[in-house]
Write a protein that binds this DNA or RNA. Sequence first.
DNA 1: GCCGAGGTAGACAGATCTGTCTATTAGTGT
DNA 2: ACACTAATAGACAGATCTGTCTACCTCGGC
Lengths: 203, 203
Amino acid sequence: MNATPATSARRAASVAPPVRAARERILDTAFGLFYAHGIRGVGIDRIIAESGVAKATFYKYFPAKDDLVLAYLDKVDAVWSEQLHAAASAAGPDPAAQLVGMFDALDSACRREGYRGCAFINAAAENEAGTPIHTRTLRHKNQVRAWVRQLAVDANAADPDALARSLTLLLDGGLASGSVDAGADAPVVAKAAAQALVSAAVA
Amino acid sequence: MNATPATSARRAASVAPPVRAARERILDTAFGLFYAHGIRGVGIDRIIAESGVAKATFYKYFPAKDDLVLAYLDKVDAVWSEQLHAAASAAGPDPAAQLVGMFDALDSACRREGYRGCAFINAAAENEAGTPIHTRTLRHKNQVRAWVRQLAVDANAADPDALARSLTLLLDGGLASGSVDAGADAPVVAKAAAQALVSAAVA
DNA sequence: GCCGAGGTAGACAGATCTGTCTATTAGTGT
DNA sequence: ACACTAATAGACAGATCTGTCTACCTCGGC
């Protein structure tokens, strides 16, 4: 936006497909393809073709397919956590209300075109325990549950661990059956059940 | 058990690896391997090697890999449904108690060595919507929910559909997170949550 | 003694997938 | 003008996977 001797990266960025666009294009393409077709269902060649990148460039940024998968899962983690937090916040300042409100994120997800369940659960189904991908999934699930648990603590739940567990069970159930069923009532029922469980636990 | 001129099949069956043993051996081997490593993670060659069968024999009984996968899912369906029904029955004649009791099947499943979640959810994760395998999964989930719904009707639940949905959500959540987490408290918490939901719905 | 059914063993074709490597092109700072 | 960096295009090796096909073997029934 100015004429100072900006770095080359800056200059290029303001003009055309610039320096770091390649990595991002790969990741964006992988995000869509992995989610839609499963990790094993998408080959490197297809990602390369659809992201318009050369093979050497791909392997420069992601030395192995698993590295891309891990980056994909990091991205899913960021996106989904953000949606969960946003839905909770939208329910107002009361932590008990937030515990219920987070189910709105499930509802939005299930309505989304091409919804195919939880990317982490799907990834875990394709990769055995102990692999980096499976471990990454475990970490994600633990993070979400820890966040829910804190909300439960803030809401003065009698047993925050149990409440967090039951709510994440409901959430995972909604996500998992969404990959199969996608019944429109699932998220609504899940939210109602969550409401009941929260009310009982906080009373 | 007698000396009448029995059919050759009968005779053979009482002696050694007889006629239809080959098909069964293949299916049993596939059952273990598919569940443990995922469908895509197990090749035909491995199934052949571990079931001690010739390739031609394999393709005689299962013209394509998908045929074997479908047979595998049928078997899983039979086994899991049986466990669910047994757990429910064990809770006594009261349908409301049975709705809670079925969660004991989840508990047993999670404790089992090598537990890796719901075979159907895992299968669906590896196969896109519209494929026979995905469709088979959908059918299974619908069947289970229909059975639970009937139990809810028998229990005079105010809204049997909603109760059935919320309970299967909890169940699927337990199954799905079991493929990742396997936290020992999950089944216990799921059962407690189910108890709360059933009590509220039947009151 | 012989035949036929069902099984075994394994080579083979063809597709697909991951990852490597070479040769070339375009833009940037000096 | 020149060197450097980043990217492109695509051939290639090596592994793996599905499914076909040939050749042989074994055993019960007639």
